[in-house]
Design a protein around this nucleic acid. Structure first.
Lengths: 341, 341
DNA sequence: GCGTCTCATGATATCGGTTTCATCTGTTTT
DNA sequence: AAAACAGATGAAACCGATATCATGAGACGC
């Protein structure tokens, strides 16, 4: 565990010369000296001390990946395959750029501000699968550049990377319409709370409107959470007088629950009901029938966010950027023409 | 962004007094002064600088969560729901103890050693879903305490938290035997490379032996990876003259693939084939029929690892501990008595 | 031959804390 | 009243790097 002083002493030079070698300051040190110092550093397996470095530079080369604690356990956030995957890609991209990733769950803005200060974080990334009240506050009060995934506020300068949710909802619904469906339901965890789901819902309405259709209240399944919520939707469907021939579900897991619930109640998918999901997550290919779904490119999302972050770190005036990434339809087996067209 | 000096100046005391207040050194500062300093700190939202602190204390309060890069992308590691969940619980537990979590993917031991030094890491946790060659080397060369999940070397002093894989394999097989199965296959990504899978395989053999049975080479499905591997197993089964009535799969995803492959080839689970998986991961409850599986308590696993780590950080002589956590059988729908008993 | 300029290198202060040891005031002991 | 002592506080060194400015040795111009 040698320090820059040890290296300097052994090389018979000052610490500044060693420092200049480390930073490849060719103009400030002769090639011969540089070579000699480099050899000694290699022999000692010298590694600079980040604490000393960040103390004077006021920058730690650490990026915080912030995970809001949602209804109790932080673990639930990384349990979510989407979050895990996103964080994995972020780590990969940041590591390439020689930045370090600190993963931090939190439930108060103050925690984040303190964290940023105590470590002199260079930047922060907020991973937000659900809506929450803290985000606006955090955006306004943070000192370091902050990139937010999946959330945008029109009235605030902010850096964010979102999906074209409107288009996602539209594409899913339009696809069903073109297959001949006219009775199309919509299932979501909470239609009016999350801007993501609102966007998808808007797209759904727009597509319906193009076919001179309007939503029917009894085909809107609000509060359908995860697999259990999907099964509840199936239960509700099974008791309906006039039931939709297709359902747009805003999450794959929800769609899977609907599939499973239907199968258990004697409704066949896609024969009796077509279902389309969102995210193309792992279960989508696992269930039978395989799920038709609206997919997103998580890696591209991560890359876009990292790009925004670095631009903001380099340029103090870059504090307002809004990336909208496109979605694509993945056709599988959970959608077909309605039976009695 | 005030420093300890600013606080000291405003309170009209020396930095040492402020430092003593921060550390609740009641013996070294009068209650009145302490109170006054505390108020000023609160007003300034003072937060100590970790770089300065770790520079002198040679400890950063950072714990590294190390993710070996496996065949390319690091993202794949956090994509794995097991890893994501484990990391989530680790973060939660470490945060409670005021430690910070740095997530680091790596593919060379040197990277890890450099990382540990450059940040003066207090401890490291290696999350290892697959076998790898680097681990032994890392265990032997690391300076900081290191806890390894799911891997144990008898001949090396090390801290690790493993599952009772032998018992898992035994329990799964024994369960099938008690249901009346006598023709039991075994499917795994690689039977002889991973100690985890070897353990499960040993358990499988032991259970068979108790019923005077031996394994049959053609019912050992080696190299079955993920869902695709499972489907390949189903394909192989469908062409068999004499096929097993049940299969033990060492991963849920693998079991799911077998289920799906069987369904597509006209074999019913559990009527024609019983399948038992491992891990009780999210897909287990998603598919139809729901998967009977050997479950583990990931939170307990994380807690045990953290406990080992902290004991090692406190006590330099604590460098050899081997925790073996138990498994439990989760009965669902993918196992029943064989048809023609 | 002397001033100027460049190149290579070094001395020193500094970042924001902690550690160690000193000091100062007032009280108790003898 | 002098000495001893405890309690409260402070001065200064230090951790390992970087930034700023200084210095010394040759090369070059005139």
């Amino acid at each position: 565990m040698s320090t820059i002083k040890d290296i300097a002493a052994e090389a018979g030079v000052s610490v500044m010369t060693v420092s200049n070698v480390i930073h490849n300051n060719h103009a400030r040190v002769s090639p011969a000296t540089a070579q000699r110092v480099r050899e000694i550093m290699a022999r000692h397996q010298y590694v600079p001390n980040m604490a000393a470095r960040s103390l004077i530079s006021k920058s730690s080369h650490i990026i915080a990946v912030l995970l809001p604690i949602w209804h109790g356990s932080a673990a639930s956030m990384l349990l979510d395959p989407y979050t895990g995957q996103l964080v994995g890609y972020l780590e990969e991209l940041l590591r390439e750029k020689q930045y370090y990733v600190m993963v931090c769950s939190f439930d108060q803005v103050e925690q984040v501000l303190a964290l940023q200060q105590t470590w002199q974080m260079d930047g922060m990334i907020l991973v937000l699968p659900h809506e929450d009240a803290i985000t606006r506050d955090l955006i306004q009060r943070t000192q370091a550049p902050l990139v937010v995934f999946d959330r945008h506020y029109e009235d605030l300068p902010m850096l964010d990377v979102c999906l074209n949710d409107r288009r996602g909802g539209y594409t899913a619904t339009r696809y069903l319409l073109e297959k001949g469906h006219r009775k199309i339901g919509f299932a979501a965890p909470s239609i009016y709370e999350s801007s993501v789901i609102q966007g998808r819902f808007q797209g759904y309405l727009e597509a319906l409107a193009e076919y001179q259709l309007r939503e029917r209240k009894d085909w809107l399944f609000d509060g359908a959470v995860h697999q259990e919520g999907g099964e509840a939707v199936a239960e509700a469907l099974s008791h309906m007088q006039e039931r939709p021939t297709a359902v747009v579900a805003t999450e794959d897991l929800l769609a899977c629950g609907i599939l499973k619930g239907c199968q258990e109640r004697g409704m066949q998918v896609p024969e009796d009901l077509s279902v389309i999901g969102f995210d193309d997550s792992m279960p989508a290919r696992l269930i039978t029938p395989q799920l038709t779904t609206i997919a997103q490119d998580i890696r591209q999302k991560a890359a876009t966010g990292v790009q925004q972050l670095f631009q903001a770190m380099e340029d103090e005036t870059y504090r307002n950027a809004h990336a909208v990434l496109d979605i694509r339809l993945v056709e599988r087996q959970s959608v077909r023409e309605p039976g009695n067209i």
